[in-house]
Design a binder for these strands. Structure first.
Length: 527
RNA sequence: GGCCCGUUCGUUUAGAGGCAGGACACCAGGUUCUCAACCUGGCGACGUGGGUUCGAUUCCCGCACGGGUCACCA
Protein backbone atom coordinates (compact mmCIF):
# COMPACT_ATOMS: atom_id res chain seq x y z
CA UNK A 1 0.00 0.00 0.00
CA UNK A 2 1.36 3.39 -0.96
CA UNK A 3 1.53 5.87 1.86
CA UNK A 4 -0.46 9.02 1.12
CA UNK A 5 -0.55 11.99 3.43
CA UNK A 6 -2.05 15.41 3.12
CA UNK A 7 -1.99 18.89 4.52
CA UNK A 8 -5.19 20.88 4.32
CA UNK A 9 -4.69 24.62 4.51
CA UNK A 10 -7.49 27.13 4.50
CA UNK A 11 -6.79 29.96 2.11
CA UNK A 12 -6.06 32.59 4.70
CA UNK A 13 -3.40 34.60 2.91
CA UNK A 14 -0.44 33.49 4.97
CA UNK A 15 1.45 30.34 5.96
CA UNK A 16 1.71 29.88 9.71
CA UNK A 17 4.87 28.39 11.16
CA UNK A 18 2.88 25.79 13.11
CA UNK A 19 1.15 24.74 9.91
CA UNK A 20 4.48 24.30 8.26
CA UNK A 21 5.58 21.96 11.01
CA UNK A 22 2.46 19.83 10.49
CA UNK A 23 2.92 19.87 6.74
CA UNK A 24 6.59 19.02 7.14
CA UNK A 25 5.86 15.91 9.19
CA UNK A 26 3.31 14.80 6.61
CA UNK A 27 5.76 15.44 3.83
CA UNK A 28 8.64 13.65 5.54
CA UNK A 29 6.48 10.65 6.30
CA UNK A 30 5.30 10.37 2.71
CA UNK A 31 8.76 10.85 1.24
CA UNK A 32 10.26 8.34 3.61
CA UNK A 33 7.83 5.69 2.47
CA UNK A 34 8.07 6.55 -1.17
CA UNK A 35 4.49 7.74 -1.06
CA UNK A 36 2.64 10.89 -2.01
CA UNK A 37 2.05 14.12 -0.19
CA UNK A 38 -0.89 16.22 -1.26
CA UNK A 39 -2.48 19.53 -0.54
CA UNK A 40 -6.20 19.82 -0.10
CA UNK A 41 -7.70 23.26 0.03
CA UNK A 42 -10.24 23.72 2.80
CA UNK A 43 -12.22 26.55 1.32
CA UNK A 44 -15.75 25.47 2.19
CA UNK A 45 -16.04 28.63 4.19
CA UNK A 46 -14.25 31.01 1.87
CA UNK A 47 -16.13 33.89 0.36
CA UNK A 48 -13.82 35.47 -2.17
CA UNK A 49 -10.66 35.14 -4.14
CA UNK A 50 -9.39 31.78 -3.01
CA UNK A 51 -6.51 31.79 -5.49
CA UNK A 52 -5.20 35.05 -4.16
CA UNK A 53 -5.40 33.95 -0.53
CA UNK A 54 -3.82 30.64 -1.45
CA UNK A 55 -0.84 32.01 -3.32
CA UNK A 56 1.28 32.99 -0.29
CA UNK A 57 0.76 29.52 1.12
CA UNK A 58 1.81 27.75 -2.05
CA UNK A 59 4.77 30.11 -2.46
CA UNK A 60 5.78 29.38 1.10
CA UNK A 61 5.81 25.65 0.51
CA UNK A 62 7.72 26.06 -2.72
CA UNK A 63 10.35 28.14 -1.00
CA UNK A 64 10.66 25.60 1.78
CA UNK A 65 11.07 22.79 -0.72
CA UNK A 66 7.97 21.00 0.50
CA UNK A 67 6.61 19.82 -2.81
CA UNK A 68 3.19 18.32 -3.28
CA UNK A 69 2.34 15.52 -5.67
CA UNK A 70 -1.30 16.38 -5.99
CA UNK A 71 -3.36 19.43 -5.15
CA UNK A 72 -3.62 22.91 -6.55
CA UNK A 73 -1.43 23.98 -9.44
CA UNK A 74 1.40 26.35 -8.58
CA UNK A 75 -0.75 29.38 -9.34
CA UNK A 76 -3.58 28.05 -7.18
CA UNK A 77 -6.03 28.32 -10.06
CA UNK A 78 -6.72 24.67 -10.79
CA UNK A 79 -6.22 21.14 -9.53
CA UNK A 80 -3.48 18.76 -10.51
CA UNK A 81 -3.72 15.04 -9.80
CA UNK A 82 -5.89 12.00 -10.50
CA UNK A 83 -8.40 12.40 -7.66
CA UNK A 84 -9.22 16.07 -8.00
CA UNK A 85 -10.58 18.56 -7.68
CA UNK A 86 -8.64 19.24 -4.50
CA UNK A 87 -10.64 22.29 -3.52
CA UNK A 88 -13.42 21.49 -1.11
CA UNK A 89 -15.59 24.19 -2.62
CA UNK A 90 -15.67 22.14 -5.82
CA UNK A 91 -16.54 18.84 -4.20
CA UNK A 92 -20.06 19.56 -3.01
CA UNK A 93 -21.58 16.71 -4.97
CA UNK A 94 -19.34 14.20 -3.24
CA UNK A 95 -20.45 15.49 0.14
CA UNK A 96 -24.12 15.46 -0.83
CA UNK A 97 -23.81 11.85 -1.87
CA UNK A 98 -22.21 11.01 1.45
CA UNK A 99 -24.98 12.76 3.38
CA UNK A 100 -27.55 10.84 1.43
CA UNK A 101 -25.80 7.55 2.11
CA UNK A 102 -25.65 8.27 5.83
CA UNK A 103 -29.34 9.21 5.86
CA UNK A 104 -30.26 6.08 3.93
CA UNK A 105 -28.38 3.95 6.41
CA UNK A 106 -30.02 5.56 9.41
CA UNK A 107 -26.68 6.97 10.58
CA UNK A 108 -27.81 10.54 10.18
CA UNK A 109 -31.14 12.33 10.47
CA UNK A 110 -32.89 15.50 9.45
CA UNK A 111 -33.26 17.79 12.42
CA UNK A 112 -35.60 20.71 12.70
CA UNK A 113 -34.73 22.20 16.05
CA UNK A 114 -34.30 25.96 16.04
CA UNK A 115 -31.19 27.47 17.58
CA UNK A 116 -33.36 28.79 20.40
CA UNK A 117 -34.77 25.37 21.18
CA UNK A 118 -31.29 23.93 21.29
CA UNK A 119 -30.16 26.71 23.51
CA UNK A 120 -32.93 25.94 25.99
CA UNK A 121 -31.85 22.30 26.15
CA UNK A 122 -28.26 23.26 26.52
CA UNK A 123 -28.97 25.63 29.37
CA UNK A 124 -31.13 23.14 31.19
CA UNK A 125 -28.34 20.58 31.06
CA UNK A 126 -25.97 23.15 32.41
CA UNK A 127 -28.35 24.01 35.22
CA UNK A 128 -28.71 20.36 36.15
CA UNK A 129 -24.94 19.99 35.96
CA UNK A 130 -24.95 17.23 33.44
CA UNK A 131 -23.35 17.02 30.02
CA UNK A 132 -25.58 18.30 27.28
CA UNK A 133 -26.89 15.76 24.87
CA UNK A 134 -29.52 16.69 22.32
CA UNK A 135 -32.92 15.11 22.99
CA UNK A 136 -33.56 14.49 19.27
CA UNK A 137 -37.02 15.95 19.82
CA UNK A 138 -37.11 17.58 16.41
CA UNK A 139 -35.56 14.65 14.64
CA UNK A 140 -37.52 13.64 11.53
CA UNK A 141 -37.51 9.88 11.18
CA UNK A 142 -39.63 9.82 8.05
CA UNK A 143 -40.38 12.01 5.07
CA UNK A 144 -43.85 12.66 6.48
CA UNK A 145 -42.41 13.94 9.71
CA UNK A 146 -39.98 16.09 7.81
CA UNK A 147 -42.80 17.52 5.75
CA UNK A 148 -44.73 18.25 8.90
CA UNK A 149 -41.84 20.17 10.47
CA UNK A 150 -41.28 22.02 7.26
CA UNK A 151 -44.96 22.88 7.22
CA UNK A 152 -44.34 24.66 10.49
CA UNK A 153 -41.81 26.79 8.69
CA UNK A 154 -38.80 25.02 10.19
CA UNK A 155 -35.52 24.66 8.37
CA UNK A 156 -33.77 21.34 8.56
CA UNK A 157 -30.14 20.42 9.03
CA UNK A 158 -28.65 16.96 8.89
CA UNK A 159 -27.07 15.57 12.03
CA UNK A 160 -25.11 12.46 12.70
CA UNK A 161 -27.04 9.92 14.71
CA UNK A 162 -24.17 9.00 16.95
CA UNK A 163 -23.98 6.02 19.26
CA UNK A 164 -25.08 6.78 22.79
CA UNK A 165 -23.24 4.01 24.47
CA UNK A 166 -19.91 2.27 24.34
CA UNK A 167 -16.56 3.70 23.46
CA UNK A 168 -14.71 4.78 20.38
CA UNK A 169 -11.27 3.25 20.56
CA UNK A 170 -8.47 3.82 18.11
CA UNK A 171 -4.71 3.71 18.00
CA UNK A 172 -2.90 6.95 17.46
CA UNK A 173 0.58 6.68 16.01
CA UNK A 174 1.83 9.38 18.34
CA UNK A 175 -0.37 9.08 21.39
CA UNK A 176 -1.06 5.38 21.54
CA UNK A 177 -4.45 3.97 22.43
CA UNK A 178 -7.19 6.59 22.64
CA UNK A 179 -10.64 6.07 24.13
CA UNK A 180 -13.67 8.31 24.00
CA UNK A 181 -17.15 7.66 25.38
CA UNK A 182 -19.75 7.85 22.65
CA UNK A 183 -22.31 9.33 25.01
CA UNK A 184 -20.18 12.45 25.32
CA UNK A 185 -20.38 13.05 21.60
CA UNK A 186 -22.95 15.43 20.18
CA UNK A 187 -25.04 14.69 17.15
CA UNK A 188 -22.89 16.96 15.04
CA UNK A 189 -24.39 18.81 12.14
CA UNK A 190 -22.94 17.65 8.83
CA UNK A 191 -25.16 19.62 6.49
CA UNK A 192 -26.37 23.17 7.02
CA UNK A 193 -29.90 24.39 6.50
CA UNK A 194 -28.75 25.91 3.21
CA UNK A 195 -27.69 22.49 2.01
CA UNK A 196 -23.94 22.97 2.18
CA UNK A 197 -21.80 20.56 4.12
CA UNK A 198 -19.48 20.99 7.06
CA UNK A 199 -15.86 20.33 7.61
CA UNK A 200 -15.93 16.99 9.39
CA UNK A 201 -17.97 15.31 6.72
CA UNK A 202 -16.00 16.92 3.92
CA UNK A 203 -12.70 16.02 5.46
CA UNK A 204 -13.58 12.36 5.86
CA UNK A 205 -15.03 12.06 2.36
CA UNK A 206 -11.99 13.75 0.83
CA UNK A 207 -9.52 11.66 2.74
CA UNK A 208 -11.18 8.58 1.36
CA UNK A 209 -11.52 9.96 -2.17
CA UNK A 210 -7.86 10.94 -2.12
CA UNK A 211 -6.82 7.54 -0.74
CA UNK A 212 -5.20 9.10 2.31
CA UNK A 213 -3.57 6.40 4.41
CA UNK A 214 -2.20 8.50 7.27
CA UNK A 215 -3.92 11.48 8.76
CA UNK A 216 -1.15 13.42 10.48
CA UNK A 217 -2.47 16.62 12.01
CA UNK A 218 -2.49 18.87 15.01
CA UNK A 219 -3.77 17.71 18.38
CA UNK A 220 -6.73 20.09 18.12
CA UNK A 221 -8.31 17.45 15.96
CA UNK A 222 -7.91 14.58 18.39
CA UNK A 223 -11.32 15.20 19.94
CA UNK A 224 -12.85 15.31 16.46
CA UNK A 225 -11.63 11.87 15.60
CA UNK A 226 -14.51 9.79 17.00
CA UNK A 227 -17.11 11.57 14.89
CA UNK A 228 -14.90 11.24 11.85
CA UNK A 229 -14.45 7.57 12.49
CA UNK A 230 -18.20 7.27 12.81
CA UNK A 231 -18.66 8.91 9.42
CA UNK A 232 -15.93 6.87 7.77
CA UNK A 233 -17.23 3.58 9.12
CA UNK A 234 -20.77 4.54 8.23
CA UNK A 235 -19.73 5.09 4.65
CA UNK A 236 -17.83 1.85 4.55
CA UNK A 237 -14.43 3.45 4.21
CA UNK A 238 -11.16 1.88 5.25
CA UNK A 239 -9.99 3.93 8.20
CA UNK A 240 -6.75 5.83 7.81
CA UNK A 241 -4.12 5.70 10.54
CA UNK A 242 -4.20 8.73 12.78
CA UNK A 243 -1.30 10.66 14.26
CA UNK A 244 -1.95 13.76 16.34
CA UNK A 245 0.93 16.15 16.77
CA UNK A 246 1.36 18.43 19.76
CA UNK A 247 0.79 22.07 18.94
CA UNK A 248 3.61 24.59 18.64
CA UNK A 249 3.58 26.90 21.65
CA UNK A 250 4.46 30.55 22.06
CA UNK A 251 7.95 31.67 22.97
CA UNK A 252 8.32 31.17 26.69
CA UNK A 253 4.79 29.90 27.24
CA UNK A 254 2.80 26.76 26.80
CA UNK A 255 -0.05 28.34 24.93
CA UNK A 256 -0.63 27.72 21.30
CA UNK A 257 1.31 29.93 18.90
CA UNK A 258 -1.11 32.28 17.20
CA UNK A 259 -0.66 34.91 14.57
CA UNK A 260 -3.16 37.14 16.28
CA UNK A 261 -1.05 37.52 19.39
CA UNK A 262 1.90 39.00 17.59
CA UNK A 263 1.82 42.22 19.63
CA UNK A 264 2.24 40.17 22.76
CA UNK A 265 5.15 38.18 21.36
CA UNK A 266 6.97 41.36 20.49
CA UNK A 267 7.26 41.97 24.21
CA UNK A 268 9.46 38.90 24.30
CA UNK A 269 13.00 40.19 23.93
CA UNK A 270 14.36 37.41 21.76
CA UNK A 271 11.34 37.39 19.53
CA UNK A 272 11.60 41.12 19.14
CA UNK A 273 15.25 40.88 18.25
CA UNK A 274 14.47 38.42 15.49
CA UNK A 275 11.68 40.66 14.30
CA UNK A 276 13.65 43.90 14.41
CA UNK A 277 16.53 42.37 12.53
CA UNK A 278 14.12 41.26 9.82
CA UNK A 279 12.35 44.59 9.65
CA UNK A 280 15.63 46.43 9.26
CA UNK A 281 16.56 44.34 6.26
CA UNK A 282 13.18 44.58 4.65
CA UNK A 283 13.16 48.33 5.07
CA UNK A 284 16.47 48.53 3.25
CA UNK A 285 14.70 46.75 0.43
CA UNK A 286 12.36 49.68 0.27
CA UNK A 287 9.34 47.94 1.69
CA UNK A 288 7.88 50.69 3.78
CA UNK A 289 4.52 49.01 4.08
CA UNK A 290 5.50 46.23 6.46
CA UNK A 291 3.55 45.80 9.64
CA UNK A 292 3.70 43.12 12.28
CA UNK A 293 0.26 42.01 11.14
CA UNK A 294 1.49 40.81 7.80
CA UNK A 295 5.19 40.37 8.35
CA UNK A 296 6.49 38.61 11.40
CA UNK A 297 8.31 35.48 12.52
CA UNK A 298 5.10 33.48 12.90
CA UNK A 299 4.60 33.69 9.15
CA UNK A 300 6.92 31.88 6.76
CA UNK A 301 7.27 34.78 4.31
CA UNK A 302 9.30 36.54 6.97
CA UNK A 303 12.15 34.10 6.66
CA UNK A 304 12.18 34.03 2.92
CA UNK A 305 12.07 37.79 2.56
CA UNK A 306 14.87 38.36 5.05
CA UNK A 307 17.11 35.76 3.48
CA UNK A 308 17.04 32.78 5.78
CA UNK A 309 17.87 29.40 4.35
CA UNK A 310 14.89 27.15 3.87
CA UNK A 311 16.96 24.23 5.09
CA UNK A 312 17.70 25.97 8.37
CA UNK A 313 14.07 26.80 8.99
CA UNK A 314 13.03 23.27 8.15
CA UNK A 315 15.75 21.77 10.30
CA UNK A 316 14.63 23.86 13.25
CA UNK A 317 10.97 23.06 12.79
CA UNK A 318 11.68 19.38 12.48
CA UNK A 319 13.12 19.38 15.98
CA UNK A 320 10.11 21.17 17.40
CA UNK A 321 8.50 18.13 18.91
CA UNK A 322 10.72 15.49 17.41
CA UNK A 323 14.18 14.17 18.04
CA UNK A 324 16.28 11.35 16.74
CA UNK A 325 18.40 10.72 19.81
CA UNK A 326 20.20 12.55 22.57
CA UNK A 327 22.59 14.49 20.35
CA UNK A 328 21.91 14.70 16.62
CA UNK A 329 20.56 18.09 15.61
CA UNK A 330 21.78 18.83 12.13
CA UNK A 331 20.01 17.09 9.31
CA UNK A 332 20.23 17.40 5.58
CA UNK A 333 17.03 16.89 3.61
CA UNK A 334 18.00 13.32 2.84
CA UNK A 335 18.80 12.62 6.48
CA UNK A 336 15.50 14.09 7.61
CA UNK A 337 13.61 11.86 5.26
CA UNK A 338 15.66 8.87 6.26
CA UNK A 339 15.35 9.28 10.02
CA UNK A 340 11.92 10.77 10.62
CA UNK A 341 9.48 8.66 12.55
CA UNK A 342 6.13 9.31 14.15
CA UNK A 343 7.09 7.17 17.13
CA UNK A 344 9.61 9.79 18.20
CA UNK A 345 7.23 12.71 18.08
CA UNK A 346 6.87 14.15 21.58
CA UNK A 347 3.51 14.32 23.29
CA UNK A 348 4.03 17.64 25.02
CA UNK A 349 3.89 20.91 23.12
CA UNK A 350 7.17 22.62 22.24
CA UNK A 351 7.71 26.36 22.35
CA UNK A 352 8.90 28.27 19.37
CA UNK A 353 12.35 29.54 20.36
CA UNK A 354 13.69 32.43 18.26
CA UNK A 355 17.20 32.03 19.64
CA UNK A 356 17.44 28.41 18.67
CA UNK A 357 16.12 29.09 15.20
CA UNK A 358 18.76 31.78 14.85
CA UNK A 359 21.43 29.30 15.90
CA UNK A 360 20.31 26.84 13.23
CA UNK A 361 20.39 29.55 10.60
CA UNK A 362 23.89 30.50 11.75
CA UNK A 363 25.17 26.95 11.49
CA UNK A 364 23.54 26.27 8.13
CA UNK A 365 24.81 29.53 6.67
CA UNK A 366 28.34 28.71 7.72
CA UNK A 367 28.15 25.59 5.64
CA UNK A 368 26.95 27.25 2.45
CA UNK A 369 29.88 27.64 0.02
CA UNK A 370 30.63 31.19 -1.10
CA UNK A 371 29.75 30.27 -4.65
CA UNK A 372 26.17 29.62 -3.58
CA UNK A 373 25.98 32.67 -1.37
CA UNK A 374 26.82 35.02 -4.25
CA UNK A 375 23.56 34.75 -6.22
CA UNK A 376 21.57 34.64 -2.99
CA UNK A 377 23.02 37.90 -1.76
CA UNK A 378 23.20 39.55 -5.15
CA UNK A 379 19.43 39.42 -5.23
CA UNK A 380 19.26 41.43 -2.04
CA UNK A 381 21.73 44.01 -3.29
CA UNK A 382 19.68 44.39 -6.44
CA UNK A 383 16.39 44.65 -4.59
CA UNK A 384 17.92 47.33 -2.39
CA UNK A 385 19.04 49.21 -5.49
CA UNK A 386 22.74 48.91 -4.65
CA UNK A 387 23.50 46.87 -7.75
CA UNK A 388 21.85 47.41 -11.09
CA UNK A 389 19.86 44.78 -12.91
CA UNK A 390 21.29 42.97 -14.77
CA UNK A 391 24.41 43.07 -12.65
CA UNK A 392 27.59 44.53 -14.22
CA UNK A 393 30.05 41.75 -14.96
CA UNK A 394 32.60 42.86 -12.39
CA UNK A 395 30.11 42.48 -9.54
CA UNK A 396 30.44 38.69 -9.35
CA UNK A 397 34.14 38.56 -8.47
CA UNK A 398 33.85 41.59 -6.24
CA UNK A 399 30.89 40.17 -4.33
CA UNK A 400 32.69 36.88 -3.96
CA UNK A 401 35.58 38.61 -2.27
CA UNK A 402 33.25 40.67 -0.09
CA UNK A 403 31.40 37.59 1.05
CA UNK A 404 34.65 35.80 1.79
CA UNK A 405 35.91 38.77 3.74
CA UNK A 406 32.63 38.99 5.66
CA UNK A 407 32.82 35.35 6.68
CA UNK A 408 30.42 34.31 9.42
CA UNK A 409 29.11 37.79 9.93
CA UNK A 410 26.48 37.23 7.27
CA UNK A 411 23.87 35.22 9.15
CA UNK A 412 21.09 35.68 6.64
CA UNK A 413 21.36 36.72 3.02
CA UNK A 414 19.87 40.10 3.84
CA UNK A 415 22.78 40.85 6.15
CA UNK A 416 24.81 41.71 3.09
CA UNK A 417 22.97 45.03 3.14
CA UNK A 418 24.13 45.67 6.66
CA UNK A 419 27.73 44.65 6.30
CA UNK A 420 28.62 45.48 2.75
CA UNK A 421 26.43 48.32 1.58
CA UNK A 422 29.39 50.74 1.72
CA UNK A 423 31.15 48.81 -1.01
CA UNK A 424 28.39 49.70 -3.40
CA UNK A 425 27.67 53.34 -2.73
CA UNK A 426 29.45 56.23 -4.44
CA UNK A 427 32.26 57.72 -2.39
CA UNK A 428 30.43 60.98 -1.90
CA UNK A 429 27.23 59.19 -0.91
CA UNK A 430 28.69 57.21 1.96
CA UNK A 431 26.61 57.65 5.09
CA UNK A 432 28.37 57.91 8.41
CA UNK A 433 27.10 56.56 11.67
CA UNK A 434 27.16 59.83 13.55
CA UNK A 435 28.06 58.31 16.90
CA UNK A 436 30.93 56.31 15.47
CA UNK A 437 32.15 59.31 13.54
CA UNK A 438 32.19 61.56 16.57
CA UNK A 439 34.04 59.00 18.57
CA UNK A 440 36.59 57.82 16.03
CA UNK A 441 37.18 60.55 13.47
CA UNK A 442 36.15 63.89 14.93
CA UNK A 443 38.69 64.15 17.79
CA UNK A 444 41.71 66.25 16.71
CA UNK A 445 44.13 63.45 17.55
CA UNK A 446 42.28 60.98 15.35
CA UNK A 447 42.00 63.56 12.66
CA UNK A 448 45.76 64.16 12.61
CA UNK A 449 46.61 60.49 12.56
CA UNK A 450 44.17 59.94 9.74
CA UNK A 451 45.85 62.72 7.78
CA UNK A 452 49.22 61.09 8.19
CA UNK A 453 47.96 57.63 7.45
CA UNK A 454 46.36 58.89 4.30
CA UNK A 455 49.83 59.80 3.03
CA UNK A 456 50.98 56.27 3.79
CA UNK A 457 48.06 54.78 1.92
CA UNK A 458 48.82 56.92 -1.08
CA UNK A 459 52.11 55.11 -1.56
CA UNK A 460 51.38 51.50 -0.60
CA UNK A 461 52.18 49.29 -3.54
CA UNK A 462 50.44 47.09 -4.45
CA UNK A 463 47.27 48.16 -2.69
CA UNK A 464 46.67 44.74 -1.22
CA UNK A 465 46.14 43.06 2.12
CA UNK A 466 49.73 42.17 2.95
CA UNK A 467 51.40 45.40 1.89
CA UNK A 468 48.62 47.28 3.65
CA UNK A 469 49.20 45.41 6.85
CA UNK A 470 52.97 45.91 6.58
CA UNK A 471 52.44 49.63 5.99
CA UNK A 472 50.21 49.77 9.03
CA UNK A 473 52.83 48.09 11.20
CA UNK A 474 55.44 50.54 10.01
CA UNK A 475 53.08 53.42 10.69
CA UNK A 476 52.48 52.21 14.25
CA UNK A 477 56.19 52.07 14.86
CA UNK A 478 56.86 55.50 13.38
CA UNK A 479 54.10 57.11 15.39
CA UNK A 480 54.63 55.11 18.53
CA UNK A 481 50.95 54.22 18.77
CA UNK A 482 48.89 51.09 19.19
CA UNK A 483 46.79 49.69 16.42
CA UNK A 484 43.62 50.53 18.32
CA UNK A 485 44.52 54.21 18.09
CA UNK A 486 44.18 54.36 14.35
CA UNK A 487 42.42 51.36 12.91
CA UNK A 488 38.92 52.30 14.06
CA UNK A 489 39.40 55.79 12.73
CA UNK A 490 40.29 54.49 9.31
CA UNK A 491 37.44 52.04 9.39
CA UNK A 492 34.82 54.64 10.17
CA UNK A 493 36.29 57.02 7.61
CA UNK A 494 36.07 54.57 4.73
CA UNK A 495 33.09 52.39 5.69
CA UNK A 496 30.99 54.82 7.69
CA UNK A 497 30.64 52.53 10.69
CA UNK A 498 32.62 50.69 13.30
CA UNK A 499 31.66 47.13 12.48
CA UNK A 500 32.42 45.19 9.35
CA UNK A 501 34.88 42.88 7.65
CA UNK A 502 38.59 43.03 8.39
CA UNK A 503 40.00 46.47 7.66
CA UNK A 504 42.64 45.40 5.14
CA UNK A 505 39.97 43.55 3.23
CA UNK A 506 37.81 46.63 3.22
CA UNK A 507 40.65 48.84 1.97
CA UNK A 508 41.89 46.56 -0.76
CA UNK A 509 38.39 45.81 -1.96
CA UNK A 510 37.52 49.48 -2.19
CA UNK A 511 40.77 50.30 -3.96
CA UNK A 512 43.18 53.11 -3.38
CA UNK A 513 41.27 55.85 -5.13
CA UNK A 514 38.01 55.25 -3.31
CA UNK A 515 39.80 54.94 0.01
CA UNK A 516 41.65 58.21 -0.45
CA UNK A 517 38.55 60.02 -1.57
CA UNK A 518 36.59 58.74 1.39
CA UNK A 519 39.29 59.70 3.85
CA UNK A 520 39.48 63.12 2.27
CA UNK A 521 35.76 63.54 2.67
CA UNK A 522 35.83 62.34 6.27
CA UNK A 523 38.58 64.78 7.10
CA UNK A 524 36.59 67.61 5.64
CA UNK A 525 33.50 66.59 7.52
CA UNK A 526 35.46 66.44 10.76
CA UNK A 527 36.62 70.05 10.52
C1' G B 1 -17.97 23.15 33.86
C1' G B 2 -17.78 17.98 31.01
C1' C B 3 -14.34 15.07 28.25
C1' C B 4 -9.27 14.35 26.72
C1' C B 5 -4.06 15.36 27.11
C1' G B 6 0.60 17.05 29.00
C1' U B 7 4.55 18.15 33.07
C1' U B 8 13.14 16.58 32.87
C1' C B 9 17.99 22.86 33.27
C1' G B 10 15.50 29.69 31.14
C1' U B 11 14.18 27.03 26.13
C1' U B 12 14.45 22.39 23.35
C1' U B 13 15.30 17.47 23.99
C1' A B 14 17.71 12.29 25.67
C1' G B 15 17.04 8.79 29.20
C1' A B 16 16.58 4.21 32.16
C1' G B 17 13.72 0.81 38.32
C1' G B 18 20.44 2.07 40.50
C1' C B 19 26.00 8.73 38.62
C1' A B 20 20.09 12.60 34.97
C1' G B 21 23.22 13.42 28.91
C1' G B 22 23.23 16.87 24.54
C1' A B 23 21.89 21.53 22.02
C1' C B 24 20.47 26.80 22.25
C1' A B 25 20.73 30.80 25.67
C1' C B 26 23.54 32.74 29.75
C1' C B 27 28.30 33.60 32.62
C1' A B 28 33.82 33.47 32.84
C1' G B 29 38.48 32.93 30.40
C1' G B 30 41.28 32.58 25.69
C1' U B 31 41.95 34.37 20.54
C1' U B 32 41.14 39.00 17.67
C1' C B 33 41.81 45.73 14.24
C1' U B 34 35.80 46.23 15.20
C1' C B 35 31.79 42.93 14.82
C1' A B 36 31.08 37.93 14.09
C1' A B 37 33.17 33.18 14.30
C1' C B 38 36.19 29.92 17.02
C1' C B 39 38.45 27.34 21.61
C1' U B 40 38.23 26.13 27.03
C1' G B 41 35.53 26.08 31.35
C1' G B 42 31.12 27.17 34.34
C1' C B 43 25.97 27.85 35.94
C1' G B 44 21.63 25.07 35.49
C1' A B 45 16.13 20.45 35.58
C1' C B 46 13.04 15.35 36.88
C1' G B 47 5.67 20.04 39.54
C1' U B 48 3.58 17.86 44.33
C1' G B 49 1.69 14.17 48.03
C1' G B 50 1.07 9.12 48.76
C1' G B 51 1.88 3.89 47.35
C1' U B 52 4.87 -0.47 45.22
C1' U B 53 10.30 -1.42 45.86
C1' C B 54 16.45 -2.62 49.06
C1' G B 55 16.15 1.61 45.85
C1' A B 56 11.22 5.72 42.03
C1' U B 57 12.71 11.28 38.20
C1' U B 58 11.20 6.38 35.81
C1' C B 59 5.70 2.00 37.61
C1' C B 60 0.58 2.99 40.16
C1' C B 61 -3.03 6.50 42.57
C1' G B 62 -4.39 11.39 44.08
C1' C B 63 -3.43 16.66 43.82
C1' A B 64 -1.56 21.07 41.60
C1' C B 65 -0.36 23.61 37.36
C1' G B 66 -0.56 24.11 32.08
C1' G B 67 -3.11 23.04 27.60
C1' G B 68 -6.68 21.16 23.93
C1' U B 69 -11.79 20.49 22.83
C1' C B 70 -16.94 20.98 23.49
C1' A B 71 -20.31 25.84 16.43
C1' C B 72 -25.34 25.42 11.03
C1' C B 73 -15.77 27.51 11.85
C1' A B 74 -11.75 24.87 9.66
Amino acid sequence: MTVRTRFAPSPTGYLHIGGVRTALFNWLFARQHGGQFLLRIDDTDAERNVAQALQPILDGFKWLGIDWDEGPTDDGQESRGPYGPYFQSQRGDRYQAAVKALLDRGLAYRDYATPEELKVERERAEKEKRAFLYSRRWMAESDEQAAKFEGEGRKGVVRLKLHREGKCIFDDLVRGRCEFDWDKEQDHVIQRADGTCLYHLASVVDDDDFRITHVIRAIEHLANTPRQIFIAEGLGYTLPKYAHLPYVAEPGSSQKLSKRKIAQYLKNQEFKRLYDHGIEIVQRLGRGDVSAETFNPVIVDFYRDVGYLADAVINYLMLLGWSLDDKTEDFSRAEMIQHFSLQRVTKAPASFDPKKLWAFQDRHMQRVPTKQKVPLMLRFLQKAGLVSEPAPCDVGPKLTRIIEASGDRLKVAGDILQYADFFFVADDQLAYDEKDFQKRVAPPQSHDLLCKFKEVLATVEPFDNEPLEAAMQQFLQDEGIKIGDIIHTVRVAVTGKSVGPGLYDCLSLLGREAVLRRIERALEKAQ
